[in-house]
Design a binder for these strands. Structure first.
Length: 708
RNA sequence: GCCGAAGUAGCUCAGCUGGUAGAGCAGCUGAUUCGUAAUCAGCAGGUCACGGGUUCGAGUCCCGUCUUCGGCUCCA
């Protein structure tokens, strides 16, 4: 949370680079004020890749303004003013803010309104400090570098909007982002890294490599998987199925929709209703219902008219009448009677044949509508757990059945806010590598440990060597609102999870107040080959929802107990995981994952050569290798260029010489020509590399091994 | 959802202050038979995101909608 106050301890812990960037934010503010003295400054902290300053300003700053802002910043760093720390009393600070002196170059007519607000939020007893560089003074707790000249190299990067303190009820500010480094070399390296990241962008590569597409008619956030992308999905599912089968999981299948009641039971409605697609209403009695509703309204009118015409006019009523009415016609008719007469019926006498007829008519209609029942309401499923809970409950369970591990690549639909959609990383239809493990408390530790080990196994396969597990716990103050109200269970399960994480030596950090509503969770963060961060999977403990579903198993003592549930998805969703893999591998997938594993490129199109090429293609395809034959009339250079461009993993170039020697000329994407090899050796090498899921991409070792 | 920017051929992009919509690549047809990153020629390809408006005339100006992007907020 960028706008949450940092404690003095956290500030003292700022790294040198953060200090430098924080100082750069002050220099940015100095420059902005020189150009637009009326600017109201809010906050300007260092962030992960740089810094920003939030300002309120009538002029809309655009990248076109960056040049002149940077020029002013340059002047300030050239001047090499010292950062001067001044301690002031609360009253002095308030006085200065009122005179517009804070976040300013000098006195101004308007008070420094955001600074005033910030001062008011500084806890009593905490020191209030100002920092000055040149003529610029800002309310700031520091720390800073010694002088403005210590900011070696900086550049403004982009501009965005942000609510003051991140609250949409507050005014919207312009947030100017920049980055700064000790020297120009580091700055240049950073921008080179960004360039590389741009080249690896999964949206760009996904289009170029024909992996997936989006279409306006299908809808935003609903990816269409082209055959090349679907091939990756197939491989991931194969991997998951093998791994999970070996770990004792059982596969299940559930529909994509369910009745409203399921999500009421699970508690997702109303808690997550906004992020679900709006419901579908199915009404088999739509016409009949409409007719009877209409005649019910007619009957009501009849009652009303009777009241108006007769009873009210005659003006008589009694408690005995009321009781008699209710007994004869029921509570509902009485209520309706009251509603229709605006309460006058209380004072009116009850009786008369006409009223009786009207009420009989009315009641018949009410009863008929009741028999029709309510229309069916269905939701697209936003998660698989409720369906899986129903599967647990579908069969009587005993402790002997536990742990029960139900796995499914379930397709979920989530109505993510339009502004959240982002390529494959945030979508509205997602296929999750989901499973739910139902177990006893005693089994929990072993199950949870096994899940973590599965993560580590996958990391190895995909060459992910940097990860962290974020262990999110509850906030006791929000029990009953954001979190299921059971303090004891929270503490108990959190302790269990913490224990497993500690004992298994997993790399984790603890994050308070971010748990799921039904239990503590673990978010798995990984870093791609170029150091971009992704949250790939979440792993959750659920001690609440199985009870809501009334799930029980028979214990050894023949009593009933509720199982614990672990929600886990090591490969997250296909969408996000493949998005990650594309950027991780820069589109150069290892052979087993490559959309097109082998392309056969004959030199020329003479019949015997094509026949030879076809026989190799058939042999590979018989082993389910994704092999294609380029039988076109292009020159070989051109065929190679096309194959390289599509990042085809292995190319087999075939000419007369190869035909005569029963050989193939091996070429691997990124490795170039590896020379002619016996056909059987190359085929065997390809099959082995796929079977073993050798982790490296094109720079991998298998091509080299074959070339030996 | 909020703020800002963008949307021209399958892709990458040009199209100036309003005056008949263009290139390269990809595609198709033909020629080329070439040993490791692009052989040549021809053809075809467009409701300039969509809907209104201003104008004699709109890709270009104005308004609305959709989508995408950069952020904010959100993420069971």
């Amino acid at each position: 949370m960028p706008d949450e106050r940092k404690t003095p301890d956290e500030r003292a812990g700022m790294t040198d680079l953060e200090r430098l960037r924080h100082s750069a934010a002050h220099v940015l503010a100095t420059a902005i004020l020189r150009l637009w003295p009326e600017a109201q400054l809010a906050a300007g902290p260092p962030v992960e890749n740089g810094f920003y300053y939030d300002v309120e300003l009538p002029h809309h700053i655009s990248p076109d303004d960056f040049g002149k802002i940077e020029a002013e910043m340059k002047r300030e760093t050239k001047a090499n003013h010292p950062f001067e720390r001044v301690e002031v009393s609360r009253d002095e600070a308030l006085d200065m803010a009122n005179r517009g002196l804070l976040g300013a170059l000098g006195a101004r007519s308007a008070p420094s309104k955001f600074k005033l607000d910030i001062i008011e939020n500084i806890p009593e007893g905490e020191k209030i400090t100002l920092y000055r560089n040149g003529e610029f003074t800002d309310l700031c707790a520091g720390p800073h570098v010694m002088r403005t000249g210590n900011i070696g190299a900086f550049r403004l990067t982009n501009i965005a909007s942000a609510y003051y303190k991140g609250d949409e009820k507050n005014p919207q500010l312009q947030r100017i982002y920049g980055t700064a480094f000790k020297n120009k070399t580091q700055l240049d390296e950073y921008f080179a890294m960004l360039e590389e990241a741009k080249k690896r962008d999964h949206r760009k590569l996904g289009k170029e490599l024909q992996l997936f597409a989006f279409d306006d008619d299908v809808g935003p956030g609903l990816p269409l998987w082209l055959p090349r992308g679907a091939a990756i999905i197939e491989e991931l599912e194969k991997l998951a199925k093998e791994t999970e089968f070996a770990a004792g999981y059982q596969r299940v299948r559930t529909p994509h929709i369910a009745r409203e009641q399921l999500y009421k039971t699970s508690g997702h409605i109303p808690l997550y209703k906004e992020s679900m697609f709006p419901p579908m209403t199915v009404d088999e009695h739509e016409i009949e219902r409409a007719e009877w509703e209409k005649s019910k309204a007619g009957a009501e009118f009849g009652i009303t008219r009777f009241i108006e015409d007769r009873l009210v006019a005659e003006g008589k009523s009694s408690d005995a009448d009321q009781a008699a009415f209710k007994k004869r016609w029921g509570e509902e008719a009485w209520e309706q009677f009251i509603i229709n007469t605006g309460g006058d019926a209380l004072d009116a006498g009850i009786g008369g044949e006409e009223l009786k007829r009207s009420l009989a008519n009315y009641k018949e209609r009410v009863n008929h509508l009741r028999r029709l029942g309510l229309p069916d309401v269905y939701y697209l499923k936003a998660m698989n757990c409720p369906h899986h809970h129903k599967l647990f409950g579908a069969v009587p369970r005993s402790y002997r059945d536990l742990p029960l591990r139900l796995a499914e690549y379930g397709c979920n639909y989530r109505y993510e806010q339009s502004g959240e959609l982002f390529g494959l990383m945030r979508v509205r239809s997602l296929q999750m590598n989901d499973a739910h493990i139902y177990c006893t408390e005693e089994q929990f530790e072993e199950e949870f440990r096994a899940v973590n080990e599965m993560y580590l196994k996958y990391f190895k396969i995909f060459g992910i060597d940097k990860y962290i597990m974020r262990f999110s716990t509850h906030d006791p103050a929000k029990l009953g609102q954001k979190f299921v109200d059971n303090s004891e269970l929270w503490l108990k399960t959190e302790e269990m999870v913490r224990g497993v994480l500690q004992r298994s030596g997993i790399n984790y950090i603890e994050v308070p107040n971010e748990a799921a509503f039904y239990g503590p969770k673990i978010d798995v963060q990984v870093w791609s080959a170029i150091g971009r961060e992704f949250t790939i999977a979440t792993n959750q403990v659920d001690f609440a929802v199985p009870a809501r579903f009334g799930l029980v198993y028979k214990t050894r003592e023949n009593t009933e107990a509720t199982p614990l549930c672990i929600h886990r998805a090591p490969l997250g969703t296909h969408e996000r995981f493949i998005g990650f893999l594309i950027e991780h591998y820069a589109g150069n997938f290892p052979l087993w994952l490559a959309p097109e594993q082998v392309r056969i490129l004959p030199i020329g199109d003479e019949a015997p050569l094509l026949e030879y090429a076809r026989s190799i293609e058939n042999e590979l395809r018989a082993h389910e290798v994704r092999a294609e034959l380029d039988a076109g009339s292009d020159h070989i250079k051109s065929k190679i260029a096309s194959a390289e461009q599509m990042k085809v993993h292995t190319m087999l170039v075939l000419g007369k010489r190869d035909l005569e020697a029963n050989a193939v000329s091996l070429r691997v994407h990124g490795q170039g020509n590896l020379g002619a090899k016996p056909r059987a050796q190359v085929v065997a090498g390809i099959l082995a590399a796929i079977k073993e899921r050798r982790p490296l991409a094109t720079h991998g070792s298998w091509g080299r091994e074959l070339a030996r």
